[in-house]
Computed example of a mutant assay.
Amino acid sequence: MVKQVTQPEGPQVVIEVWSDLGCPWCYVGKHRLQAAIAQRPDAERFEIVMRSFELDPGAPQEPEKNETSFIRAHGGTAAEVLQAERQMQAIARKEGLEFSLDRLNANTFDLHRVVQYANDQGRGFEFFSSVQDGFFAGTLNPYAPDTLAGVAETVGLDGQRVREILASTEYSDRVCADRDEGLELGAVGVPFIVLDRRVAAPGAQKVLVYDQLLEQVAGPVPRVRVS
């Protein structure tokens, strides 16, 4: 007979994710973290909270080509950027993720302000994830207010409220505070993940590593045994 050995559900575990929209490793790392959580029978214990971290605070408001954005911020040539993008595309596709090479980048501060609002409504991760997935798939313009309002509505948020936020400066202080706190905790880039305020994980880890980190903060998963 196969019996499920159950364990107490245990307390909620908060996983804070410092991330930015156009970071490819944030995109891949997010899905790896989700996969690690999903394979646990106690997946509902884990709450992912998005934290804001602009990688390029000086990026222009007007969208520009991905290679233009990268060269402006980091140097290099268009050929080098394309080669790196193709390598990242191969990694993403190997994990079942869409990855368009035809992306535009711009300042993400306003998006982060909406994420802060979404966090207040308990929908921060769902909202950010939907925007980022559409962005990397090449099916969504994250810099258009109407687009963000539409995505917000799909995850149960008030689209009109999103438009009001984008037309104001609301949540600006919180976006800046998030980045400052991430730096204080040791983030030198993103993704940067803090589990239960006890364990930090810089960079996009493998699913197995995330699984080990989840076990470290939440205990082992329930086992199945034959008796």
Rank of each mutant, 00 (worst) to 15 (best):
N141Y: 02
G58K: 13
R72M: 04
I37K: 10
P63D: 09
D102P: 00
A38W: 00
L104I: 01
G124Y: 06
A43S: 13
E80W: 00
F128M: 15
A92Q: 00
N119L: 06
F53W: 07
E44P: 00
N66G: 08
L140R: 05
I71W: 02
V81E: 01
A90G: 13
F135T: 10
Q61H: 03
E47P: 02
L55M: 09
G96I: 12
I48E: 10
D56I: 10
Q121I: 02
A84N: 11
N66E: 14
D120A: 15
R40P: 04
E44L: 10
E85N: 12
Y143G: 01
A106G: 05
D102W: 00
I91H: 08
A106I: 02
L33E: 05
L97N: 05
G124R: 04
D120Y: 11
A118G: 10
A149K: 01
K94C: 01
Q34N: 11
R40G: 07
E47G: 06
S52Q: 04
I48F: 06
F46E: 09
G75C: 06
Q61F: 02
L82W: 07
F135D: 08
R32P: 04
A118R: 07
D133F: 10
A36C: 12
D120C: 12
V81G: 04
Q132M: 12
L97Y: 06
L148Y: 01
F99S: 11
G138E: 01
D146Y: 00
N107V: 08
P63V: 07
P60H: 01
E98I: 00
E153H: 03
A144L: 07
V151P: 05
E54Y: 01
P145V: 04
A78S: 15
A92E: 01
S52T: 03
A36L: 04
D102H: 09
F109P: 03
Q61S: 08
A84T: 12
E85K: 13
A38V: 07
E85L: 15
S100H: 11
S129Q: 13
G75N: 05
V115G: 10
V115L: 08
A84Y: 07
L140H: 06
P63L: 07
G76M: 05
A36P: 08
T139D: 05
D42K: 12
D110T: 03
S100V: 13
H112G: 06
L111Q: 03
F128W: 13
F128N: 15
D56M: 12
R123I: 03
F46D: 09
A73Q: 15
Q132W: 00
D110H: 13
L104F: 09
R93M: 12
Q116F: 00
Q83T: 13
A35M: 09
K94I: 00
R86W: 04
Y117S: 07
S100W: 13
R72H: 09
V131F: 07
V131P: 12
G134V: 11
T139M: 01
H31E: 05
G96H: 06
A73L: 12
N107S: 05
G138M: 04
Q132H: 02
L55R: 01
F127N: 08
G58W: 10
A106V: 02
G75D: 14
E54M: 12
S130G: 00
E98C: 01
T108K: 02
F125Y: 13
E62D: 07
R123Y: 00
R103S: 10
E80A: 14
R45M: 12
R32L: 06
R45S: 14
E54G: 02
H74S: 09
A144N: 13
R72C: 06
E126C: 13
E95G: 07
F70W: 14
I91F: 03
G75V: 05
P145N: 04
